[in-house]
């Protein structure tokens, strides 16, 4: 009887703790929707999303966030394009081919990389990468979309590598033995058997990476130049995240509300990415 009571109490406590997380998600969603909608309605949905000019403080004010949206899409795609192959092949090497010693060193290095705060990535990018890009491509200034993509692709490496390694190591050894026994080489076994079996885990790694990139603001502000241009590889650009973060401090009135609207757009972006990728992962698991 006493045990039963204890069980119930513990269950209630865990339920409440679980609900706290859900509650916060709902709270943030409601807050973003309530504070983001007015400015969108005032500016006009179409004009807000598809106008190319962002001039919040000029007398002919204009609140078009198309440059931010496109920059975020290009930047994320670029970072995943560079980060995913590197991360994926590192994970394959570390989980299947690497000697124990190398694996140990590499894994602790990756853990360290994951623990570096994003402002440090930004600072190193600003002091090393930006001047380097300026010299290599003989540009007048190195702060550009390219700099942001490179920093972001470095930032997603740890999550891609770690989650992929876990997925690859969860593949039952018997699958691999069977493949090897049938005469497949080690490389064939890894890519045709292990990777296939770990597919959904690797897809999860991609989702995590994409979400980290889309939501990153601090490092990006410091290396991308932060001007509301239409995106181009060597131009100074502004992401959705940096648009919110950089102008929030001194904004007021419609300008401030428009920043909340950008945050809402960003939120929807992340939701869409999550839902689409989850859909594919679930479909693959069933299939």
């Amino acid at each position: 009887m006493k045990n039963k009571l204890f069980e119930n109490i513990m269950q209630a406590i865990f339920l409440i703790l679980g609900l706290i997380a859900v509650g916060f998600v709902l709270l943030i969603s409601f807050y973003l929707i309530i504070s983001g909608i007015p400015a969108i309605l005032e500016i006009g949905v179409f004009k807000f999303l598809f106008s190319k000019s962002w001039a919040p403080t000029s007398p002919q004010e204009n609140f078009g966030i198309l440059p931010f949206i496109l920059t975020s899409i290009y930047g994320t795609s670029g970072a995943v394009l560079i980060g995913l192959p590197i991360g994926f092949f590192s994970a394959v090497y570390l989980s299947k081919f690497a000697p124990k010693k190398i694996k140990l060193i590499a894994e602790s290095a990756i853990n360290l990389l994951a623990g570096i705060p994003s402002v440090v990535y930004g600072l190193v990018g600003m002091l090393v990468l930006v001047p380097l890009i300026k010299i290599i491509f003989s540009l007048p200034d190195g702060a550009s979309l390219l700099a942001a993509i490179l920093v972001l692709s470095l930032m997603i490496l740890p999550s891609i590598i770690k989650v992929s390694i876990n997925a690859l190591e969860a593949v039952p050894k018997e699958y691999e033995y069977a493949s090897l026994a049938l005469g497949a080489t080690e490389t064939e076994t890894v890519f045709k058997v292990s990777v296939k079996a770990a597919k959904s885990g690797i897809a999860t790694a991609v989702v995590l990476g994409v979400c980290r990139v889309v939501g990153e603001a601090v490092a990006v502000i410091m290396v991308s130049g932060n001007v509301a241009n239409m995106p181009s590889l060597f131009q100074s650009v502004r992401f959705l995240t940096s648009a919110v973060a950089s102008e929030m401090a001194y904004s007021s009135g419609l300008h401030r509300n428009a920043l909340f609207s950008i945050a809402l757009v960003l939120f929807l972006f992340i939701m869409i990415i999550n839902i689409t990728l989850n859909f594919f992962i679930k479909r693959d698991r069933k299939g």
């Binding site: 001039a55 403080t57 000029s58 007398p59 600003m126 002091l127 930006v130 001047p131 300026k134 007048p140 200034d141 702060a143 502000i221 410091m222 130049g225 932060n226 001007v227 100074s236 502004r238 973060a245 950089s246 401090a249």
Partner: peptide, 24 residues
Amino acid sequence: HKAKYRQELTSSGDVITTVSKNAF
């Protein structure tokens, strides 16, 4: 509202650091 910036930074410190790193 007429200035055409190459970079718009969010703090004095960032402006100073960037200028100190670029000769032009």
